[in-house]
Every structure is written in structure tokens, then in C-alpha cells.
């Protein structure tokens, strides 16, 4: 369903467990209450850039068309501004559903492979796990090296300005004992 074109969908494209499993996630409960009014798409400042609007994501999720949804860039373009969620007349937590879709796309390896957004999310995740804090400058450099190393050149002028104004910390900030934090995160994985 890229670029708004419509394709036929068949019974075998449907994963009937998909909507139920999303509804079982925190914030997914009201998925089936959607009346397809489009308030979410109208409110979303990103919808003009999306391959599927938020309304369509909700419709396809409810219909069980998992692949279309998880391969879409839409959940990743969601900037978590919560405008859709606050405006939804059916109290659907659209932003939380977008988060649930992102996590499922990562789990299933179906996220858009050429998008830098999941790359940033993963780099951030690993940096926090290792150090307990994130370093803006290191995160930006790591993202550039993994996606588009040449972009570092384009960023140089802003980088120099930030250094000059004392707004770029080059060191990796960290908590005193990252192992203590790690023990919490490990315990979360076990239970």
C-alpha cells in the first residue's frame, strides 16, 4: 500500500491475531472503537509525509493486515506529539498504538530497513543500557556513521557553532554504576 495506491488483499494476507495482540498492549484496548472519522490524520502534523495516514493504520491494524502496517514508515514518523490521541472522539490512544507497532516491527524484523529512525532508536537504547545516560553529540555521530557518513560534513557548521557556544559535550556522560541499572533491566527481561 505504498504511496497511497491500493492493491487487492486476500484472506492469507490477514493475521487475525494481530489486532487482538495489539489490543492486549497498554493503550491498545480501544482499537475496535474507531469510527474512521479521520480526526487523527487531520490533526497529525506528519500525515502529509506518511505512506499511510494514522486513520489507515488503525483500519489496517483492525483488519489484521499486519505486513502493510509494520513495513510502513508511518509509526516511525510519529513524533509522539499526542495530538491525535488528545483529539480522538473515541478515546483511542493512537500514539500508544504507534509505539506498540514500532516495537512489534522491531521484534518481527519488519521495520522499514532504509529509514534512519529505527537506527537512532536502537543506538539510543544501547547507549542508555551501557552508560545510563545519553550523549547527544555521540548519538548524532553514531547515527551518521551508520546511515550517511557524508552528512557529518554538512553538520560541521552547526557543530562548530555548538562547540563555540559551549553547547556540545564531547564526553560520554554516565551514571556512577551502570551495572546497577543493568540489573534492573535484566530483571525486567526475566519476569
Amino acid at each position: 500500500m505504498q504511496n497511497g495506491t491500493t492493491h487487492c488483499r486476500y484472506a492469507e494476507d490477514v493475521n487475525p491475531a494481530f489486532p487482538t495482540e495489539i489490543m492486549a498492549k497498554p493503550g491498545g484496548e480501544a482499537l475496535r472503537d474507531c469510527i474512521q472519522c479521520g480526526t487523527c490524520s487531520g490533526a497529525c502534523p506528519m500525515s502529509v509525509h506518511m505512506d499511510l495516514t494514522p486513520r489507515r493504520v488503525i483500519a489496517l491494524t483492525r483488519a489484521g493486515l499486519e505486513r502493510d502496517v509494520l513495513e510502513s514508515a508511518t509509526p516511525w514518523l510519529c513524533a509522539s506529539c499526542y495530538e491525535c490521541q488528545v483529539r480522538c472522539p473515541r478515546d483511542i490512544k493512537v500514539t500508544e498504538i504507534m509505539y506498540a507497532l514500532k516495537r512489534r516491527a522491531i521484534e518481527k524484523g519488519l521495520f522499514p530497513k532504509r529509514s534512519p529512525i529505527p537506527v537512532l532508536a536502537k543506538a539510543f537504547y544501547h547507549m542508555v543500557a551501557a552508560h545510563g545516560r545519553n550523549s547527544e553529540s555521540r548519538l548524532v555521530i553514531e547515527l551518521a556513521l551508520r546511515t550517511n557518513p557524508l552528512s557529518l560534513l554538512k553538520m560541521a557548521p552547526v557543530g562548530i557553532k555548538l562547540l563555540r557556544t559551549g553547547r556540545m559535550a564531547l564526553g560520554q556522560d554516565h551514571i556512577k554504576d551502570p551495572k546497577q541499572l543493568q540489573s534492573i533491566l535484566d530483571a525486567m527481561e526475566e519476569s
Binding site: Y99, R103, I106, P118, A121, Y125, R133, N134
Partner: peptide, 12 residues
């Protein structure tokens, strides 16, 4: 420690 922002919530 870091709050995790929007990125961490996207993974776990």
C-alpha cells in the same frame, strides 16, 4: 539516569 525519551519506548 536517562529518561529514555521517545526512542527507548519504541524498543521496549
Amino acid at each position: 539516569n536517562c529518561c529514555g525519551a521517545t526512542s527507548y519506548m519504541s524498543i521496549s
